[in-house]
Design a protein around this nucleic acid. Sequence first.
DNA 1: TAGGATTCCGAACGAACGTTCGAATAGTCC
DNA 2: GGACTATTCGAACGTTCGTTCGGAATCCTA
Lengths: 219, 219
Amino acid sequence: MASASTTTRKSVRQHRVAALPETRYDRRLAEILSHATEVFCKKGYEGASMRDLSRESGMSLAGLYYYFGSKERLLYLIQRHTFTTIVERLKTRLQGVDDPEERIRIFILNHLEYFLANQAAMKVLSHEDEVLKNDFGSEVATIKRSYYRICVGLLDALKQERRLHFSPRIAVLSLFGMMNWIYTWHNPRVDADAETIASEMGDIFLRGVMASQGNGRKQ
Amino acid sequence: MASASTTTRKSVRQHRVAALPETRYDRRLAEILSHATEVFCKKGYEGASMRDLSRESGMSLAGLYYYFGSKERLLYLIQRHTFTTIVERLKTRLQGVDDPEERIRIFILNHLEYFLANQAAMKVLSHEDEVLKNDFGSEVATIKRSYYRICVGLLDALKQERRLHFSPRIAVLSLFGMMNWIYTWHNPRVDADAETIASEMGDIFLRGVMASQGNGRKQ
DNA sequence: TAGGATTCCGAACGAACGTTCGAATAGTCC
DNA sequence: GGACTATTCGAACGTTCGTTCGGAATCCTA
């Protein structure tokens, strides 16, 4: 879940097999990150105490601090890992696909699939958006901006190809709203799976945007 | 902002003019609610301390408790007032309008206008959605459900009139997502006003939903 | 202006907070 | 087995938390 390079340990151990840097430390760290994600999701970052995390992960309060310098850094590691993973997956999936509409469909599917498969982590990413300050905050903000820009690029391509008229900013942010809001309502026992929802949201969004031929009011 | 009936005072005073129940108490309470809304918006409910509220509103820590029994009740009053107001305004605006599409456009405009005019309150309503428990929580949830149902009703009317094919649940929740997400990105100095945004979001959503004639995949 | 109700506050309560530290334990290599 | 490092913990640190309480200040009415 998190690589050793993200830690603050004084001594960096040498790994016998460079291609498999999964040390005991890394594994334990990932476990704790996973439990912490669950707790942050349930109680919110501010509402969750280090003692809650200790109880949930089965490790002593002081023991946690061997892995993370601070509670804030804990949230940072969760957010950074979640965000970089979703961006990486998107880039892989987009490779070799040229049709602008299809590329946007892939974007939506990738986002929603990851969202529903990692609901807790994505809620922590969406809901605790503004709590990280300074370096931690700006680093996550950088990843976020790059993700946003990818989406703008996809929409611009569609717009150019079909000579559409709509405001890319409002469109992108509307799309993100549709998708991210899902953490407030999705119930796995009632609602459809990611593919179905992605298809339906894709329909609404793409038809809405593509119907703006000529008679759009903006730009 | 809040009526006297919402308080827990032991003695209820008689008002000289029944039609104007704006007592000193009510005015002061509304002031504090307004400051508290600002602080909750900026630091989050859990992140904001009663001492923060005291500082912001210029009233002593103990003085605040004369008006609110608890921090939780404070959030409850903010959320209830905000939600009931937006529902009331919507009902007024919908009166006399029969065209289904126009009614949905009114819904969107009403929501976004109130959202941007009361950004702090709406962020507190959206972002602190799950923190109220028990009676407070279920009472706000009731208002929320009624608001949701109104929107479903508007969409069903459109669907029936134009013989469309889409899932009302996904459509409504997508629309709420588009609109509510605005608190994460709207910048008054950069972005357009409510009317413009409502028009653009309305275009995307309504065209998207209305293009589902016959070839929709769901229902 | 007296007197009772309303409004406000300083000071304190116990509990919980994030974090630290020195010592105890577990793991690894000679 | 001994020595060295990596990991874990109990106990405590000082601070801040939400809330309470008795009394002071202020307001309203007679």
